[in-house]
Amino acid sequence: MNHPERFRATRVLVTGGSRNIGRAIVERFAAEGAHVAINGVVPGEAEDLADELRAAGHTAVPVPADVSDANQVDQMLTLVCAELGGIDVLINNAAVPLLGRVPFFDLTLAQWDRQFDVGARGTYLCTHAAAQRMGPGGNVINISSVGATKAHRSAVAYDASKGAIEAFTRAAALELATHGIRVNAIAPGAISNARFQALEASVQEREVAPIPLGYAGSGDDVAGVAAFLASTDAAYITGQVITVDGGLSAQARQASSEIEIDSTTDGAA
């Protein structure tokens, strides 16, 4: 349920905010009155979403940057503060998606590095730059994955990078608590996207069979938790990881999936 005035004039930056989970988070915060900065690397996507939101009466600015590049991140945060007057909430959603499985002995160093550069390094760089510009009440929300604690087969780099993000979340929460800044994470499970929706019905049924609630989640499911964590209702919550997976990780044994339907954003933004 949206609360149109809950984040009135709150300044929010969402990395990887132009598609999938990131887009849903951007739209949720805008609908609740936030001024949103949309990061992305796919040409035109962040700009198009910002145009849509502005046409609907919201405040939105595109801020393209590669989150693995320290100089670009610093320039992005400078731009966000110039355009919005500061930053209150950072949502680290940028990731290299788990679109294909790579067996352990086929994994290249370049693939490993790219996962960590965008995911773990990007989360650190953006948090470090944003926290310096936040006052007490600042809020950082990192997007992890159930893969951080329940490994996917043939996804060593992806799962390891998500595990690093969760460890970073706890450590950063301790460091930044004295500055009045909270740091939490969300671990989505199977989140439906266009690729999943294009599958035959029988394949979709097989993929959701291991999920206790019986269906793949949506970006809105993750966005709702992000809005809660950013709100005053979560004022005493920090250093935590909230799992959003329809009960998938609660069971003792899960069927293995051949098709990845986690829809974290692609690219380095």
Rank of each mutant, 00 (worst) to 15 (best):
D69K: 02
L109F: 09
G137H: 09
F168L: 14
A234R: 10
L174R: 15
A56H: 13
S161V: 03
F29W: 03
Q254F: 11
K150N: 08
L199K: 12
A155D: 08
A155I: 01
E45G: 04
S202F: 12
E52H: 07
L77V: 01
A250D: 09
K150L: 06
A194T: 08
I25F: 00
T108V: 03
I191V: 02
V89A: 07
Q204N: 07
L125D: 13
V80W: 14
E45S: 12
V222S: 02
G224L: 04
D69L: 06
G247P: 04
I261G: 04
H35F: 11
H152G: 05
V61S: 14
V42Y: 05
S256G: 13
D221L: 00
H3G: 03
S218P: 01
R182M: 10
L213M: 08
L53S: 13
E166M: 04
A187L: 01
G217F: 00
S161D: 10
P212K: 04
A9G: 14
N71F: 08
A60W: 08
P64D: 14
A171P: 03
I25V: 05
F29K: 03
V156C: 12
D245H: 06
R182Y: 11
I242D: 07
A37F: 03
D66A: 12
I141F: 12
V36G: 02
L107V: 09
T243I: 00
S18K: 01
A55F: 09
G246W: 02
G246K: 00
F105Q: 09
E200M: 05
E260W: 10
T264C: 01
T265E: 04
R114I: 04
L49E: 06
A172R: 05
V156L: 14
L248A: 05
N93G: 02
I259Q: 14
G119A: 12
A198R: 14
I211R: 06
N93E: 00
R133T: 01
A209P: 07
F7C: 07
R101I: 01
V118I: 07
T15D: 03
L90V: 11
Y124L: 12
A157N: 10
L174F: 10
A216L: 01
E258K: 13
Q75E: 15
L109G: 10
A56L: 14
A235D: 15
T78H: 12
G180T: 06
T123N: 08
A235T: 10
P212D: 08
L213T: 02
E260I: 04
L125W: 06
C126L: 12
A34N: 08
L176G: 15
D113S: 12
D266N: 15
G163M: 05
P103G: 00
A131Y: 07
P64A: 06
A94C: 06
W112N: 07
V156M: 10
P136Y: 12
M76P: 06
Q132H: 12
Q115V: 02
R101K: 05
F168T: 05
A30G: 13
Q132N: 11
V63S: 15
N193M: 02
V183G: 07
A129D: 08
A227S: 11
D66Y: 12
C126M: 10
V14H: 03
D266Q: 13
V241W: 07
I237H: 13
V244S: 01
A31I: 01
Q115W: 09
A70D: 13
V63Q: 13
A9T: 14
Q75L: 11
G219Y: 04
E32H: 12
T243C: 02
F116T: 05
R28T: 13
V118N: 03
D221S: 03
H35Y: 15
P97L: 11
S218Q: 03
Q115R: 03
